[in-house]
Design a protein around this nucleic acid. Sequence first.
DNA 1: CCTATTGATAGGTCATGGCTTATGATAAGT
DNA 2: ACTTATCATAAGCCATGACCTATCAATAGG
Lengths: 102, 102
Amino acid sequence: MDVGLQLTALADPTRRTIYELIRHSSSSVRELTDQMPISQPAVSQHLQVLSSAGLVTATPMGTRRIYSADPEGVALLRAWVDTLWDDVLDSFARRASKEQPQ
Amino acid sequence: MDVGLQLTALADPTRRTIYELIRHSSSSVRELTDQMPISQPAVSQHLQVLSSAGLVTATPMGTRRIYSADPEGVALLRAWVDTLWDDVLDSFARRASKEQPQ
DNA sequence: CCTATTGATAGGTCATGGCTTATGATAAGT
DNA sequence: ACTTATCATAAGCCATGACCTATCAATAGG
């Protein structure tokens, strides 16, 4: 699983708000659609992207599918950003010490 | 400064590799272009996006512009992902305790 | 000065992706 | 069984964005 999937999934504003809704409380596709200014298929497509990024999971409940936030995708993203953070800080510190060797 | 800028900036694979190069060591546009299979204008455009996301900064050195990693953008991204992580974990725990009330 | 190097900007092309409507599949209620 | 509700998939449309070539501004060096 590539971190690019999480980044592209969360890069879209509409997908971010959908994800925020799910993160707030697990909901069905209908509930999500009712809170969005877009069509139901559009929501389903966004959910597909979020799902393949490991950010949400679907559990069938009768005729509905309840989408919940999945920690897995966030964990991957978080790990990547953390290494990024460490490296950038390190590189920043090295650069600063070289600019002002005195 | 919106976190969407960082996400869209890092969502593109080419831009991620450019950012990785800069993160590894500050470089000029020419150095970056020489390590990339794309044209110099394309690199400049990517640098523009990374710059407006607060991920890199440019410092003129003669006729060249040295691009360096900027901690600011990463800090914002990291903060956002961290709150995401906490909320998702919390929501996950609550969901788990409700599913198995026994 | 004149030339060469560096890098940003403009304009144009093409693929990608986000949205729509239409349709099909599945499960629940009467 | 029939209808209704929910959701996914298909096909098509259109804006966005990633790339190109061409060009210009600015600095450095002969």
